[in-house]
């Protein structure tokens, strides 16, 4: 009996070892990737924030100095500048529009589709279409609609020179881009909410209907509480995107910037990080060198991380309950 037990243990041990090997092999690439692209990258970025690279004048290479918080001072100056304020404002408007208008409408549309009301299948396709088509294609298409097509139509009503909606004023440009973001982002919201709503137990809904709830009450008391975790994810990821979302501006304008300088952090940072071989060294204009940008990145993380975590906690604590 004992021999059988030992052999069994050995066999189990072998199975265990080979499983371990499998797990290790499965996780190794992920761990390596995590170490390189997260740990190392962030570590070197944090170190960079405290450094200054100076080109050697009479020889190749450069000298690296530890400059304590000098780069942070430059970064703070930028963060408190009017330009940064304007960019933050634009991002917040986009976030608010997404939160209030897009999310509300998406919830209603998703509910409509999940309940399989009339033409719900058609609506699903129409709403999701912009998400299937490449963002660049959509942007080009949209650009022509709000420019050439608009000019063509508007010119028939007036003898004045008509400019496109992206080209006539800063307000018009911003609103036009905002509408594009709503249009493109709407489909993804609907798709995910619909998917989550479809998973809701039918018997729960039926029992509520037996108790006499109307459609609005059904949405408010059953559907929204049950999809609340998804809602939180959207709200929280949207918040983290305030400093990274580029508002599709690159798709519209490439590296040159918008016609009326509509800007957001994501787009601005992208443009700043060009010219890699040059930007390692200090530039005359502030916020162009990599160490300064690294410092700015750290500051932004320190601002956004606690806000995001607190928001999440609060939403989880005070959000609607299915009870």
């Amino acid at each position: 009996m004992e021999i059988v037990g030992t052999e069994k243990k050995k066999k189990m041990g072998k199975i265990h070892a080979s499983r371990m090997k499998f797990y290790v092999l499965m996780f190794l690439p992920l761990i390596i990737q995590f170490l390189i692209f997260y740990v190392y990258l962030n570590f070197s970025s944090i170190v960079l924030a405290f450094q200054k690279y100076t080109k050697n004048i009479n020889g190749l290479g450069h000298t690296v100095d530890f400059v304590w918080f000098k780069n942070f001072a430059t970064a703070f100056d930028f963060l408190f500048s009017a330009r940064a304020g304007e960019m933050l404002g634009n991002s917040l408007i986009l976030y608010a529009v997404n939160l209030i208008i897009v999310t509300s409408l998406a919830l209603f549309f998703s509910y409509y589709i999940a309940k399989k009301y009339m033409l719900s299948g058609l609506f699903r396709v129409i709403l999701y279409l912009p998400t299937i088509v490449s963002g660049t294609v959509m942007a080009i298409l949209y650009q022509y609609i709000v420019t050439d097509v608009y000019i063509g139509i508007a010119s028939t009503f007036t003898d004045e020179v008509v400019l496109g909606l992206l080209d006539s004023s800063k307000t018009s440009e911003f609103l036009t881009i905002l509408i594009f973001n709503v249009w493109v982002g709407f489909g993804a919201n609907v798709m995910i909410y619909t998917g989550t709503m479809s998973g809701i137990n039918e018997s729960l809904v039926e029992s509520a209907q037996l108790e006499g709830v109307n459609s609005l009450q059904e949405l408010w008391y059953i559907y929204i509480p049950l999809i609340y975790p998804t809602l939180i994810t959207f709200i929280v990821t949207g918040m983290t995107g305030i400093f990274t979302n580029q508002m599709s501006l690159f798709t519209f304008y490439g590296q040159t910037g918008s016609n009326f300088e509509v800007d957001v952090f994501g787009y601005y940072f992208y443009r700043l990080t060009q010219d890699a071989s040059v930007n390692l060294y200090p530039q005359a204009k502030p916020m162009y060198s990599y160490p300064e940008l690294s410092a700015l990145g750290l500051i932004i993380t320190l601002i956004v991380a606690p806000i995001t975590l607190i928001t999440r906690k609060l939403m989880e604590k005070y959000g609607p309950s299915v009870d």
Binding site: K55, I57, R83, Q255, T256, G257, S258, N259, F260, E261, D263, Y268, R271, L272, Q274, D275, V278, Y281, Q283, A284, K285, Y288
Partner: peptide, 27 residues
């Protein structure tokens, strides 16, 4: 040798890009 990248003159150089990198005075 020290400052050429800041005084360079071309399409998107800092010397011709007011307020933001790669911009132009047009807007």
């Amino acid at each position: 040798r020290q400052v050429w990248s800041s005084i360079n003159i071309h399409l998107s150089s800092d010397t011709l890009s007011p307020y933001a990198k790669n911009s132009s005075p047009f807007s």
